[in-house]
Design a protein around this nucleic acid. Structure first.
Lengths: 214, 214
DNA sequence: CGATAGATTGACCTCATTCAACAGGTGTGG
DNA sequence: CCACACCTGTTGAATGAGGTCAATCTATCG
């Protein structure tokens, strides 16, 4: 039945917007499937491989000593992740929903290639953007900036598919699930967005949201 | 008299700990001097060059639309900065104190070199570490983690030379100067550190601080 | 040695967190 | 296909940490 989910999801065109397909990497033989909460790699494991998301979504996070989780990035269909500074992973990577990945063995000699450089700089830029969002003062602004980011990456303002729980969003933005929920409600009450279920968001007044968050 | 400050500072050995000298880059002819608040580059300017700090300190920041400043990194003696994702700078770089820099013209063809890759991955890692610090819950923990970072990079726990104002620290950690000051006071009251003037910090109980922040 | 920017401390207030109860939606088994 | 159970999300009230405004102190530089 997960195989069913696979074909069903794949029948949608995989979004590749923003991140070009890593043509410089050897073609992956097959797609690995991950159930929600499924671990892709763990902190301490040997790094080196790259992963391209065919469908689904992934969270990359780290654990604080007090047990709290800090999600440093989400990745969606068409995006590539897995590049890290050291030889071993400093982060955990897990699927947030049913997810299909292409894995690329990354030969160490290839590390200096232009494309990998681009990927590293992109990751750096993303971390800095994330920093700007998290250091934003108000909870509503944080959530708004997050939603705009996701909408842009998914290429559709009218139909954002969150593919993650309020817990995930909270751990990404550095706030509690209650505050996340309240912020959604505030944006809804102000007529900026509409919720169709908890995970499908429609942005009605993008201008207002941009004005608020950018 | 600034020339005097130059020789005086240079008589101290320039710390190169953590960041190897960029031997892969063409030797710089001379050292450029910057007064406190002096602009090194601005957002929108053409990027490409790298800078090595001979003495002094640099802040790299970005402006929010509401005018607030978000400092994304500090750099100290021996460290190299200036690498960015795009062709133009997304950030501003300014000296926080009297600073001397070696500028390296960065030939575009060299972009794929192993050493630049290392620099990019280091920047990525730093941005992610910074994110973890800022998303830490309490103000005292943020400041403690920051001090440990600076102490490690300067290689001396007993004598941290901050080389920046409370405003800078606040804009780096995402809190007000009052909260920064109060956090310093709390750490002092708990006997973890001692202040000799506002910018010279002596960490008396590093274990306690590590326990609190790491 | 005086002027001035930077830093500290206090009082008050706002807003996110915490704790708790409730509602809704999803998935499972009958 | 329906009913129940559980997980997820929402909302409310009380608490507390950090922001804001303001006054005072002090370190540094001319």
């Amino acid at each position: 039945m997960f195989a069913g989910a696979l074909t069903a999801t794949q029948s949608h065109p995989v979004r590749t917007r923003g991140v070009p397909a890593p043509s410089f990497l050897p073609r992956a033989r097959q797609i690995s499937l991950f159930a929600p909460e499924g671990e892709i790699y763990a902190q301490g494991e040997q790094a080196g491989a790259l992963y391209r998301i065919e469908f689904g979504a992934v969270r990359v996070y780290r654990l604080h000593t007090d047990g709290r989780r800090q999600i440093v990035a989400f990745y969606f269909g068409g995006e590539t992740f897995g590049l890290e500074a050291g030889r071993t992973h400093s982060f955990f990577a897990e699927a947030t929903v049913h997810t299909g990945l292409s894995k690329f063995a990354n030969a160490p000699g290839e590390l200096a290639s232009q494309e990998l450089m681009t990927l590293a700089l992109r990751s750096m830029l993303h971390a800095q953007e994330h920093l700007l969002v998290v250091s934003r003062q108000s909870a509503v602004e944080k959530l708004g900036a997050f939603l705009l980011d996701v909408a842009e990456r998914q290429g559709d303002l009218d139909h954002i598919d969150l593919q993650m729980t309020r817990v995930d969003i909270g751990e990404y933005l550095g706030m509690t699930i209650e505050t996340v929920s309240r912020s959604f409600s505030k944006l809804r009450e102000e007529g900026i967005l509409r919720l169709h279920g908890a995970k499908t968001v429609e942005i009605i007044q993008p201008e207002k949201l941009v004005l608020l968050c950018k």
